[in-house]
């Protein structure tokens, strides 16, 4: 199972959302990157759903 590969690897974290969680990773010297996330399509739900569907077709 892939999870067991994770257990044997160095944890590398992508953080999306609360920036304090990213700061916590940094303070523990964990490899991490913070995504400057914003709602897709400016928060327009219909447009965001459309973008997501296009993305899944790519």
């Amino acid at each position: 199972m892939k999870v067991n590969e994770l257990f044997k690897s160095e944890l590398k974290v992508i953080n999306m959302g609360l920036e304090s969680f990213y700061q916590d990773m940094k303070s523990q010297d964990v490899s991490a990157i913070h995504v400057n996330w914003k709602p897709a399509a400016g928060g327009n739900e219909k447009m965001a759903a459309l973008l997501a569907r296009m993305k899944s077709l790519q």
Partner: peptide, 28 residues
């Protein structure tokens, strides 16, 4: 506190930037 750290705008660009990333923590 995060000054100078590159913050990619999407998950895809984060994956490209942090080679070997294996976990995403989501709190949006």
């Amino acid at each position: 506190a995060s000054a100078g750290d590159y913050q990619p705008p999407t998950l895809s660009s984060a994956v490209e930037h942090l080679k070997g990333a294996n976990l995403v923590q989501i709190s949006i």
